[in-house]
């Protein structure tokens, strides 16, 4: 595609308001209300299944939303984002099993490790375009997966990290208590989403949209495209890793499937399902996907076929995610179509 064509296809940008503070307060308020509702939920619906579902939503939701920072905001289609999910789960699990450090220390240390690995992998990958980027990230995902499988003495090979993850209480929080784990997952989810929202709405976030729409033009006006892409690649990896840690805490272990390529494929599908043009699209996609997956797995052992057909329906039939339709519908009702760039 030539730059002229790219320029023609580009979506119009909302210029960020100079005083972004009111929006920031509004986002923080929404996050706080959401957290309070989630935290009060167990008082009314004590069902363990529902809480489990929300914990899984938190893990997958952070992961999928962080992928949207790459796919939707920067136009970098990573097909290996799941490696950071797996890294988070294994890093955290190993840290707790082998060293016995307090949970917050292990949390921060895992993020630090993810940050270093993502910076190295990103430095190699982000100069590549479209399909090359997608496949080379995928190749790195497979490298990490095969490392996990073959480094048996450390990771337990294909059996995964077994024997449970010890979680000594800290600051009055006991993560082996199901309710505490639930509240902690919700807190991580809400904080993570709020942070990602801040990134997306910051001047840096608008730089990313510009890189997506026309990287050449962005570099002409003095933006270091490589650096912007690498920064968002590492940031997204950190949130994916957080999702992986929630997952490791939830299942009390880590399995090679967490780092397998299918988990990246699922994240891409989740983004497609919810829609990549809204910030909360991937979150909606996560809920739909988990409900769909649970239902299909219960009904048939061939859930690949059913999922595949649903994906085809969305990719060829609708070509849009669910939230895109909602946004369009709202915009139409307001009679101001076109005002829905993220």
């Amino acid at each position: 595609m030539t730059e002229l064509q790219a320029g023609r296809d580009a979506r119009t940008l909302d210029v960020p308001r100079i005083d972004a503070r009111p929006q920031r307060y509004r986002d923080a308020l929404i996050a706080l209300v959401a957290f309070i509702i989630l935290a009060l939920l167990p008082a009314f619906f004590g069902s363990k299944q529902l809480l489990d579902f929300i914990i899984r939503c938190a893990a997958y939701g952070l992961f999928a939303t962080s992928l949207n920072l790459l796919v939707g905001y920067t136009g970098m289609i990573s097909f290996g984002h799941g490696m950071f999910f797996g890294l988070g789960a294994y890093g955290f699990g190993l840290m707790m099993q082998k060293t016995g450090v307090p949970v917050p220390v292990a949390f921060v240390a895992t993020l630090a490790i993810t940050c270093v690995i993502a910076a190295v992998i990103g430095a190699i990958c982000v100069r590549l375009k479209d399909i090359y980027f997608a496949f080379v990230t995928l190749a790195f995902q497979m490298l990490i997966h095969s490392t996990i499988l073959s480094w048996q003495s450390l990771t337990g090979g294909d059996q995964g990290l077994r024997g449970g993850i010890p979680r000594p209480p800290f600051l009055g929080i006991d993560l082996s208590n199901h309710l505490h784990l639930y509240i902690a997952s919700c807190a991580l989810l809400v904080i993570g989403l709020l942070l990602m929202r801040q990134i997306a709405q910051s001047p840096f976030g608008y730089t990313l949209r510009m890189v997506r729409d026309n990287a050449t033009r962005a570099s002409f006006i003095g933006i270091d495209v490589w650096r912007a892409k690498l920064t968002i690649f590492v940031l997204a990896a950190l949130f994916a890793s957080t999702g992986g840690m929630i997952m490791a805490l939830f299942v009390s272990g880590a399995y090679p499937e967490f780092a397998y390529w299918t988990i990246s494929g699922e994240a891409i599908f989740i983004n497609m399902l919810g829609g990549v043009t809204t910030f909360l699209g991937p979150m909606v996609g996560t809920m739909l996907f988990l409900i769909l997956n649970d239902t299909v797995t219960r009904l048939t052992e061939y859930h690949g076929i059913v999922l595949g057909i649903v994906i085809l329906f969305f990719a060829i039939g609708l070509r849009k995610g669910l939230m895109d339709f909602v946004v369009e519908w709202v915009a139409q009702r307001r009679g101001q179509a076109g005002e829905h760039t993220p």
Binding site: V71, I77, F79, A134, G265, I268, F269, M272, V276, G304, I305, L307, G308, I309, I311, L312, F314, A315, I316, R319
Partner: peptide, 12 residues
């Protein structure tokens, strides 16, 4: 993204 998704669906 669409091309990858269609192929991904068929892999499954």
């Amino acid at each position: 993204l669409m091309q990858l998704l269609v192929c991904y669906a068929f892999v499954l």
